[in-house]
Design a binder for these strands. Structure first.
Lengths: 258, 258
DNA sequence: AAGTGGTCTAGACCACTGT
DNA sequence: CAGTGGTCTAGACCACTTG
């Protein structure tokens, strides 16, 4: 790629000018996804700046999520993650009929290799949001199902489901593998026909723990989706708290103008 | 607040240890929102490290969106933005009846001072996503309505609406102020009774331009919501592309289990 | 004027990756 | 091994905020 030069009279700091030039090169397609940026040593020589100045320019692009540094190898233009489009009918009964949980059924459709790991099932009592959403009393126990979803061997989502123990106890929901159709099929087996879901969506930067579990580089936010499932009685039967690598997702919703 | 110390045998780098201690202090409530962190000079003295090391610790918290640096004043624990909950019935006809656009009607309800500025209305031809969504031919013209939303004088969202010129031309939709009930009311005046909306939601780090318009500090992602409005004929009549400061929003959706 | 963060320099040593 | 990024030091000058 072609590097420009620094104008010391410019009111942008030198590191910003370098960052702007690199960013422009990426936007213009001179640096394509997966390509290596000039090394810190090259930038240092070319622009006649100290190494920390070159580093700061790269740091700026990293925190924007545009490049990824790999120790010992170089800094690379981020390759866009394959996007999963999550339609709001993804929990429709017809998909469960095929005997697959929603996530796996969908991945099949997209021809991707899907997986679930880090499955943990425990019992606990809960406070705050989850308790309110499930309308539980203080000492009511819940079954907590925690797991991580992988697509093409890359982690893309961590999820924790909370189900009232009064519903889930003694069912396969307490097992790591709840059987064909997933826990929603088991809820219906238990007489809780599902009626509707609500989802609350927001985004933020990941915690340190989330960055580790999702293997997120710098500058990648997460989508936080909290879903509550209601049965035909209007009783909340599950709260599912999910944290997704944001660039890997588009959520789709459809609603009436009424 | 109480500062700890650095363990040189710890395999976490010193700057990470410092960052971890500050983060823990914030999480524990020892440092409350709005409070100042120890200055770089104080950290440097306390931990006996170089200034750049202390700075790097603070940089880590900044890119996590947990603290905000103010030149000449200090580094402060971020004060959570007031959250707007956007329910999916916010465009319901009953809200338009009151003669207010959706955004203003909602802000009234929340008792906040809402505003809109940077309104620009132009004509253009479009390509890509927007053209596909509106099912337009290559040379079809659209009315482009761009604006910025403020809550309590702080910018929280920028939005661009695209409407087919064949529908919007000659209506108040071409005016900066489209009149009571907003453009959705004008679409219905023009015989396009609204039937339903789709929304596509994702999140990413803001561009430089978005950071400026939304006055975003480091480490704050944006929610990107693209809404398409359909009339009762099934014709797409508007595409609205919005970029929201993520911490200021929770989107709520409700959908059937079917 | 004193204190704060923003930027820059010119080195150093280390850990990781590839040949 | 050479080349890469990761971390650290010990200074310097600047711009901004507050008293």
């Amino acid at each position: 790629m072609q590097l420009g030069s620094i104008d010391r009279r410019d009111d942008r700091a030198p590191y910003r000018q370098i960052a702007d030039q690199l960013r422009a090169a990426i936007d213009a397609g001179e640096l394509r996804p997966g390509e290596r940026l000039p090394s810190e040593a090259e930038l240092t020589r070319h622009y006649s700046v100290a190494r920390m100045t070159a580093r700061q320019a790269i740091q700026e692009l990293r925190s924007e999520g545009r490049v990824v540094a790999e120790h010992g190898r170089g800094v690379f233009v981020r390759t866009p993650a394959p996007v999963r489009r999550l339609a709001s009918d993804r929990f429709a009964r017809k998909h469960r009929a095929a005997g697959r949980a929603a996530f796996l059924a969908e991945a099949d459709k997209a021809g991707a290799a899907a997986g679930v790991d880090q499955i943990e099932v425990t019992h606990a009592t809960v406070t705050g949001d989850v308790r309110e959403r499930l309308r539980l009393a203080e000492d009511d126990s819940v079954v907590v199902r925690s797991r991580r979803y992988l697509l093409d061997a890359r982690p893309i989502e961590v999820a924790v489901s909370y189900l009232p123990a009064s519903i889930a106890d003694g069912t396969p929901i307490e097992e790591p593998n709840p059987g064909p159709g997933g826990i929603y099929a088991r809820l219906e087996d238990a007489g809780h026909t599902l009626d509707h879901f609500t989802e609350e969506v927001t985004a933020r930067m990941p915690t340190t723990d989330e960055r580790r579990r999702l293997e997120l580089p710098d500058g990648v936010p997460v989508l936080v989706v909290v879903r509550t499932a209601f049965d035909t009685e209007g009783t909340p039967v599950e709260v599912c708290d999910t944290v997704k690598a944001a660039p890997a997702y588009v959520l789709e919703y459809d609603f009436p103008a009424r």
